[in-house]
Deep mutational scan, measured.
Amino acid sequence: LVRYRTISKIPQITLNFVDLKGDPFLASPTSDREIIAPKIKERTHNVTEKVTQVLSLGADVLPEYKLQAPRIHRWTILHYSPFKAVWDWLILLLVIYTAVFTPYSAAFLLKETEEGPPATECGYACQPLAVVDLIVDIMFIVDILINFRTTYVNANEEVVSHPGRIAVHYFKGWFLIDMVAAIPFDLLIFGSGSEELIGLLKTARLLRLVRVARKLDRYSEYGAAVLFLLMCTFALIAHWLACIWYAIGNMEQPHMDSRIGWLHNLGDQIGKPYNSSGLGGPSIKDKYVTALYFTFSSLTSVGFGNVSPNTNSEKIFSICVMLIGSLMYASIFGNVSAIIQRLYSGTARYHTQMLRVREFIRFHQIPNPLRQRLEEYFQHAWSYTNGIDMNAVLKGFPECLQADICLHLNRSLLQHCKPFRGATKGCLRALAMKFKTTHAPPGDTLVHAGDLLTALYFISRGSIEILRGDVVVAILGKNDIFGEPLNLYARPGKSNGDVRALTYCDLHKIHR
C-alpha cells in the first residue's frame, strides 16, 4: 500500500512540481520508500527539464536528425535550378540546329562534286560548318556529364541527390541515346576521305529529338503553341524528305545512260545542264529549293507536275512521300480545326451564355430598361472574369491554397485601402477568403433606401454616388468604403439613402 501511494504521487509531482519531503505519510521509514524516492526525484528532475525545454521552444527539443539540413553532394545540380533551365534551352537550340543542318550536310555532301578544292585539302579548321559541328559534339558530351550530376524525382516524389543513384537512373534511361548522339564521328573518321560515311553517321544526332519531343509535351495545353509546333514538325519532315529526294537524284545521276532524272530535267529547265562528264548542272541553292518544293507539294497532295519522278527509285520514294503525307494530314492537320476551336472556345461560351440571357429575357418578357441593365451587367461581368467562376475553380483546392490565391487576387485593395494598413498577414488572409466580388454598370442602383444592410462594401474600381431623395450626399471612388460596420450592432440596419454607380464599378463586399 505504501508503495502504491508513493507511485500514485508521481503525476502530481510531474505537473505541480511538489516535493515529496513535505508529505508526512511518505516520510515513514520503510525500505521500499527509501529505494523508490531517489528514482522519483530523478524522474521528476528529468520531466521538469523536458517541460522547461518545451515551454522555452528551444531548438534542442527536436531530434538531432530533424535539425540537420538535407545534404547535397558537391557538384550536384538541382533539376529545378536556373542554371539547369538555361542549359536545357541551350541544348534545345543545338538539337534544332542539328535537326536542320545534319540531314542537309549528309545529303548535299554525298558524292558532291561542286567546283573547288576537296575538304581534305583545305583542312578541318577552315570549314565553318565542321567547326560548328565540333562545338555541338562537345556541348552534347558536356550535357552527358551534367546529367550524371543532376537530381531527379523518383516514384515516391522524392528528390534524389545521391550521385550513385543518379548515375544508375541515367544509365537506365537516356544515357545510350545521348551517348550515340554525342559521338564525334568527324574526329574519329577525319582524314579518311569518307565524307559520305561521316554525313550518314552524323544523322545519329537526330535521336535527341525524342527527348525534345517529350520536353515539349508540357506545352500541349496551349493551343497556339501546339499549332506552332505542328507546323514546325511538318516543315521539318518536309526538309528531311527534300534532303533524301536530292540524295536519290544525286546518286543516280552519274550512272544513268539517259538523262531522265529530276536533276537533269531541272538543269535543262533553268539552262544549267550537266555536261557529258557529269559536272556542271544547277547550283546547290536551286537543287535544295526545288527538292523542298517537290516534297511540300507531295505532302499537301497538290502535285503540280513541273517536278516529277521519272526513275524507279524516284517513283518509289514519291509513293512513300504520299503515304507520309496522308498520315500527316490525319495526325496534324486533322487537329488544326480542334485547336482553332479551342482557341476561340471563350468567344463561343460568351455567345452561348448571351443567347441564354436573351432567351430568358424573351421568355419572361423583361421590360426594355431592365433588359438593357441585365445585358450590360452580363457584358461587364464577362469582360472582368472571362466567364470563369472563381468560386467553382477554387473549390477543388485546399483552404490554405485558397487563402493564398484570394490574398493575391485582392492584393491591390488590401495594400491601398486604409482600414487594412497594419493588419497582420493572417488577418488579411482571413479577410480575403470572405470577400465576394460584384460588378455594376453605370446607372445601376446597388442599394435602395430602406434596404437591409448586411454587408460592408469596398470599391475596387469606378465611382458611385450616394443620394437622399434627389440630393447627392457624397461621391465615392476607388478604395472608399460604404455599408454597415460589421458586428457593431446586434441587428442589421437599414439604408438611409440610395447608392448608384456612376461608372463601371468593381466592388468587394463582406457579409455579416
Score class of each variant (00 low, 15 high):
Leu414Phe: 14
Asp404Lys: 01
Ser161Ala: 09
Asn306Leu: 01
Leu401Val: 10
Ile96Asp: 01
Tyr219Phe: 14
Leu355Ser: 14
Leu413Gln: 01
Asn410Tyr: 07
Ile138Leu: 12
His380Gln: 05
Lys285Arg: 13
Glu158Ile: 09
Val159His: 07
Cys232Pro: 01
Val131Met: 05
Gln68Lys: 15
Glu376Ser: 12
Val160Asp: 08
Ile237Lys: 01
Phe108Ala: 01
Ser412Asn: 10
Val289Pro: 01
Gly164Arg: 14
Ile332His: 03
Asp286Ser: 01
Val210Pro: 10
Phe83Met: 06
Gly303Lys: 01
Tyr104Asn: 01
Phe397Ile: 06
Trp89Ile: 07
Tyr377Cys: 11
Ala403Trp: 02
Lys425Gly: 11
Thr445Glu: 07
Cys406Ala: 14
Trp240Asn: 03
Leu299Asn: 01
Ile237Arg: 01
Val136Gly: 08
Gly280Ser: 04
Trp87His: 01
Val210Tyr: 09
Thr203His: 03
Lys66Met: 10
Glu114Gly: 14
Ser192Tyr: 07
Lys215Phe: 03
Leu446Phe: 09
Phe378Asp: 04
Ser298Thr: 14
Cys126Ile: 01
Ala247Ser: 01
Thr102Ala: 07
Cys406Phe: 05
Val212Asp: 04
Asn154Gly: 13
Phe333Ala: 03
Leu343Ile: 05
Leu394Asn: 03
Thr311Phe: 01
Thr203Asp: 01
Pro442Met: 04
Leu209Pro: 03
Asn335Val: 03
Glu314Val: 01
Phe420Leu: 08
Ile260Phe: 12
His239Tyr: 03
Ser383Lys: 04
Leu241Ala: 01
Asp186Gln: 10
Ser277Cys: 04
Tyr97His: 01
Leu145Ala: 08
Ala167Cys: 05
Arg362Thr: 03
Arg208Glu: 03
His264Ala: 14
Arg373Phe: 01
Phe185Pro: 01
Asn156Gln: 13
Leu109Phe: 08
Arg362Asp: 03
Asp404Tyr: 01
Gln365Asp: 10
Ala348Ile: 06
Val447Asp: 02
Lys436Cys: 06
Phe171Met: 14
Trp262Pro: 01
Ala181His: 03
Ser283Asp: 10
Ser194His: 13
Val447Leu: 12
Gly334Ala: 08
Leu236Pro: 01
Asn386Ala: 07
Glu375Lys: 11
Arg208Ile: 04
